[in-house]
Every structure is written in C-alpha cells, then in structure tokens.
C-alpha cells in the first residue's frame, strides 16, 4: 500500500478513536490539567501500555525499526514546560486540535493557525537555539532498559503494574 494512503487511513482510525474516547475536547483536556476529569489519562495510559507490549515484541522479532527520539535535557525540559503553558491556554494539543475541529469545535481552527505560526517562529530562531539550548545535556537515543541495565520486559511490567494501580485509584476516587 502507498505510504501516504496508509498514513491517511491510520489517521482516520486514530481520529475516530480519539473522538470516541471524547479526548479531543477542551473540557476533557483541561479537566485533566485541573485534575478534575482523568478521561485523557485513562485513554493515554491504556494506549501506551498496550502499545509498548506490542512494539517491544515487534522490535525483538526485528519487524519494526527502533526510532528513538534523542535526549536533549535542556531542550526537553524547557520546551516541555513551554508546551505545557501553551497547552493550558489553548486546551488542545496538535493532534487533538485537528480532532476537535473534526467534531465541529471551530475555535480549534484558531489554535491550528497559531500552531503554524509557532512552528514558523521556531524555524526563525532555530540557528540561535541549536548553538545554545540544544547543546545542553545531549545524551542521545537512550531507552529506559539501557539506563537501568535491565530487561525490557521488566520495565514493561513496572509500567503495567503502575498503570493498573493508577486506574484502580482513579476509579476509586471517581475521577
């Protein structure tokens, strides 16, 4: 199958599931950040726990490549926190903004335009940042099993146990 057609079909399923989980909405995203409604946290952890088991099997079988985003501690932390501030204002993230627009939330269109401006702005300042922040704490493409020197499955068991514990606690609290 053509890679672009594959991408489109994958996105349609992803958007369908995001909307069915009701996680594309401002009220749900802000509900999580205000620690009032943990719908997106439930959705998110269910996705990564399932995903990490399957993807690790595919890695072991040599079917899927390992494409690990590198650690740049300075940029990861500063960028992550700036993202968080913007996220609290807009109440959508890049993927869910498209989903929100798809279910008729037209304020997401303003957000998407802002995101395009933000991307263009970053391209302008990139030469300065690449010589400064991006050089702070470069650790390369490392994984948790490498850092702790233990088996992948051990890390996954910890994640799954932690995730199930979190789910149990959230349900008990009615969040």
């Amino acid at each position: 199958m053509n890679i672009l057609v594959n991408g489109l079909i994958t996105g349609i399923f992803f958007g369908f599931l995001l909307q069915k989980g009701r996680v594309v909405r401002y009220d749900k995203q802000m509900g999580a950040l205000r620690l009032m409604d943990m719908t997106i946290v439930k959705f998110y952890f269910s996705a990564i726990l399932t995903g990490m088991i399957g993807v690790t099997v595919l890695h072991k079988l040599g079917i899927s490549p390992s494409l690990i985003l590198p650690v740049n501690i300075g940029a990861n932390i500063i960028g992550g926190l700036i993202f968080g501030i913007g996220w609290a204002i807009i109440g959508y993230c890049p993927g869910t903004a498209l989903g929100a627009l798809g279910e008729g939330r037209i304020d997401a269109l303003w957000g998407i335009m802002g995101m395009l401006v933000g991307a263009a702005l970053f391209a302008e300042v990139f030469p300065v940042i690449s010589d400064t922040i991006l050089t702070w704490g470069k650790e390369g493409s490392i994984t948790l099993p490498q850092v702790f020197g233990i088996n992948d499955w051990f890390i996954i068991i910890i994640f799954v146990a932690g995730g199930l514990g979190l789910f149990y606690w959230l349900e008990k609290k009615g969040l």
Partner: peptide, 16 residues
C-alpha cells in the same frame, strides 16, 4: 487559542 497555539508549538519544536 491562537496565542496558546503559538506558545505550545514553539515549546513542542524546542522539546523535539
């Protein structure tokens, strides 16, 4: 939403 979008995407690209 527009301003938040600018800040968020700048942060995302910085973070990677």
């Amino acid at each position: 939403a527009f301003i938040g979008g600018i800040i968020l995407m700048f942060g995302a690209r910085l973070a990677g």
